[in-house]
């Protein structure tokens, strides 16, 4: 059981590593947020599943599964909110930086 858990956790860490590389590689914001969703959703969920498998069947893993359900609903939603509000407030899709003016006060 422990070996299986460790393998799943390492898989999650590899997902996160790809995400981090992708964030710093591309210039377009929408490509970046697409890759960042790999970290936020896939990597995090895989690591948490691996931890629950590693612990076996106990009270702790029950709580972790409850948390997993919450994260499964919320984390894609956060990425969706950020991407949609960026699009609605005038971030160009073709990659040219049209930053929303932040107010210099």
């Amino acid at each position: 059981m422990e070996i299986l858990g460790n393998i799943i956790i390492i898989l999650g860490i590899i997902f996160m590593l790809f995400g981090v590389i992708g964030i710093f590689r591309y210039q377009n914001f929408f490509v970046r947020i697409l890759i960042a969703s790999k970290i936020d959703t896939v990597g995090a969920l895989t690591v948490v599943i691996g931890l629950a498998v590693k612990h076996g069947f106990s009270f702790f893993s029950l709580r972790v599964v409850l948390l997993l359900v919450l994260m499964f609903i919320i984390n894609p939603m956060v990425t969706h909110i950020i991407a949609r509000s960026a699009y609605e407030s005038g971030q160009n899709i073709d990659g040219s930086v049209d930053d929303i003016e932040e107010g210099n006060e």
């Binding site: 919450l70 609903i73 919320i74 939603m77 969706h80 909110i81 949609r84």
Partner: peptide, 15 residues
């Protein structure tokens, strides 16, 4: 205004 988010948040409110 965001339909998807609001319908999820309606559940999370109670939590």
């Amino acid at each position: 205004q965001y339909v998807v988010v609001v319908s999820v948040l309606r559940v999370i409110c109670a939590i």
